[in-house]
Amino acid sequence: MKSVIQRVSQASVSIDGNIAARIDQGLLVLICAETADTKATADRLLNKLLKLRIFSDDAGKMNRSVQDVEGGLLIVSQFTLAADVWSGNRPGFSGAAHPKMGEELYDYFVEAARKRHPIVETGTFGANMQVSLVNDGPVTIPIQL
């Protein structure tokens, strides 16, 4: 799975002009399932992001996880993370999982996150979403598993 994690002081997702999900301090998690991904891949990604120490401790060092700071997760599907732009000027998305598989892995990831973390909000798979955020730091970390 490919993911881009952004440490935020707030983030939201709007669909058709209405806010569908919102968090305060936490992580905006953009995820994309690729063709070879499995539930085990989703589990590894979730383990990594829950333990990723990218929040500041009292000394100002990145030493605390989203769990340590009791932050929220805003999980948004984004198949465009699989874009291949090496040939030509129009991105190709052949590396992205088929939509049915992508949605199944997205749903699995969200369900697993909700079992392990108290604050989980989501976008809507396949919807045209507008994502707003205040990137804290800024801290943006790409992850590919």
Rank of each mutant, 00 (worst) to 15 (best):
G95E: 06
D136C: 11
L74F: 10
V85C: 15
D37C: 02
P91V: 08
I31E: 01
N135F: 08
S12R: 07
I5K: 02
A36P: 09
G126R: 04
S56Y: 11
R116D: 12
N89P: 03
S77T: 05
A112V: 09
S3I: 01
V76D: 02
A112I: 12
V134S: 14
T122P: 03
F109A: 04
S87E: 10
R53Q: 12
K51W: 09
A20P: 01
I143S: 06
R7E: 07
L145R: 08
P118Y: 07
E103T: 09
G102W: 05
A59W: 09
G26R: 00
L74A: 06
G95L: 11
V110C: 11
V29F: 04
K48R: 14
L145D: 13
D84C: 14
A11M: 09
S132W: 08
Y108Q: 08
G72K: 01
I23D: 03
L74K: 00
M129I: 09
I143R: 04
R53L: 08
F109I: 09
F79Y: 13
G126A: 10
D37E: 11
R114T: 10
H117S: 06
P142G: 15
Q10N: 13
R22E: 11
T140N: 15
D57N: 13
E34A: 10
C32T: 02
A42S: 12
S87Q: 10
G26N: 00
R64H: 10
D43W: 05
G72H: 02
A96I: 05
A113V: 04
G102K: 00
H98E: 13
F93D: 09
V110Q: 00
N18G: 11
D16H: 12
G137N: 05
N135P: 05
S94Q: 15
G137K: 00
I23N: 01
I141G: 01
G60N: 10
N47E: 14
L145H: 14
D136L: 10
Q6K: 06
V4R: 02
V85Q: 14
Q25R: 13
I141E: 01
Q25G: 05
L81E: 02
T80N: 00
E103G: 12
A82V: 05
L45N: 03
K115H: 14
V139F: 14
Q67N: 11
M62E: 06
A36S: 15
E111G: 10
G17C: 07
S12P: 03
S9F: 07
H98F: 13
E121H: 14
L52K: 03
V8N: 03
D57W: 11
I23F: 01
E34Y: 07
T38E: 07
K61T: 12
T80M: 06
A82S: 15
S9V: 10
L28V: 04
W86R: 15
E103Q: 14
N135K: 06
V69D: 05
G88F: 03
E104C: 05
F125R: 00
S12Q: 14
D37M: 02
G17W: 07
L133R: 01
A59Y: 12
A42I: 06
A33T: 02
N47C: 13
L105E: 01
Y106P: 02
G102F: 06
A33Q: 06
P142R: 13
